[in-house]
């Protein structure tokens, strides 16, 4: 009986950990998505610019003038990276969800077992 209690506690702790991990992963994905949206807006803005327009990049406290092609490739590179990160986070979220579902089933089974055992004791 006591063993079961301990097991139950362990299970619910792992489940809680899964939930926390899921929460952080989802937050990370949301952050990535908003970064992606911002970079896409910048990319779109660059597309509509004339070849000779002045583009500056904020580096610390100073504005540095940058070539349009260079700025473009930087933003493209960022979008590429962010896209990859998003797929990575997606797979991680899926993994966590699967793991947490498995633990949940285990937990419910154990609870049912314990309930049955308790009922059996009351009856006998």
């Amino acid at each position: 009986m006591e063993q079961d209690q301990k097991k139950l506690q362990g299970l619910s702790e792992t489940l809680q950990k899964f939930q926390d991990d899921l929460q952080t992963a989802i937050e990370a994905r949301q952050r990535l998505e908003s970064q992606q949206a911002e970079n896409k807006a910048v990319q779109k803005e660059f597309k509509g610019l004339a070849e000779d327009s002045d583009i500056y990049r904020l580096v610390g406290p100073v504005l540095l003038k940058q070539d349009k092609s260079e700025a473009n490739s930087t933003v493209d590179g960022r979008l590429d990276f962010i896209g990859k990160e998003i797929t990575r986070t997606e797979t991680r979220i899926k993994e966590i969800q699967q793991g947490s579902e498995k633990k949940r089933v285990e937990l419910i089974q154990l609870q049912q077992q314990m309930q049955m055992a308790a009922q059996g004791q009351v009856q006998s």
């Binding site: 910048v42 327009s53 500056y56 990049r57 504005l63 700025a71």
Partner: peptide
């Protein structure tokens, strides 16, 4: 004017 277009980029417009 210098416009902040996001992600640290400013464009003269």
């Amino acid at each position: 004017v210098l416009v902040d277009v996001g992600t640290g980029y400013y464009v003269s417009k």
